[in-house]
Amino acid sequence: MYLNPVRHITIDAHDPWKLATFWAAVTGYTVGAEDAPGDDEVLLSAPEPGAPGILFIRVPDDKATKNRVHLDIQPPAGTRDEAVERLVKAGATVYEDHRTGDGLGWVTLRDPEGNEFCVERSAAERA
């Protein structure tokens, strides 16, 4: 038993709905049935019981510096590069490319509001 389990990972946003729907596409989490465009808070629920949700909260201030905390995404299928391509089409931008010639490394992307996250190699690529 955890002493203090993580219930939510909270991300500040100008547009919680827009950012939540982007992250739903990234993670496979689901947007709460009671959440709607224009809401000040939007919650994504994990498909696995006990995993923390991702909560997006409206804030007026802009993101000014590098995130102190970020999410690392490991594609469940396919390759890291296919995931990067799919995420860029969904609205992410490549920020820093740490891929190496031998196929190792990761790519740091930014979500539509500039929050950094990394895409690692898939489990199949690590095997």
Rank of each mutant, 00 (worst) to 15 (best):
R110I: 03
E96I: 05
A127V: 07
G32F: 00
G105P: 11
Y29G: 01
L104K: 14
D40I: 06
E113I: 11
D61N: 02
A24K: 04
A127K: 08
D40L: 06
V107Y: 00
E82K: 07
R68C: 03
Y95D: 15
P16C: 11
L87W: 11
I9G: 14
H14E: 12
Y2Q: 15
V42P: 11
E34T: 00
R58Y: 07
V88H: 08
G32C: 03
T108C: 14
A77W: 03
P16L: 14
E113Y: 07
T10H: 02
D40F: 04
P5M: 11
D97L: 10
L87Q: 08
T27F: 01
V94C: 02
A90L: 14
V107P: 11
V26I: 01
E41I: 10
G78I: 06
I57R: 06
G101E: 14
P16R: 12
D35S: 08
V88A: 05
G53Q: 05
Y2T: 15
M1W: 08
A127D: 14
A124S: 15
P76G: 10
K18N: 09
T30A: 12
W17I: 07
T65H: 05
A124W: 08
F22E: 06
Y2P: 12
D72S: 14
R7A: 15
G105L: 10
P49I: 08
A25V: 06
W23K: 00
N4Y: 05
Y29R: 07
Q74M: 15
T10N: 04
E48C: 02
N67G: 11
A33L: 04
T30C: 02
T100P: 09
P52Q: 04
G105A: 03
D15F: 03
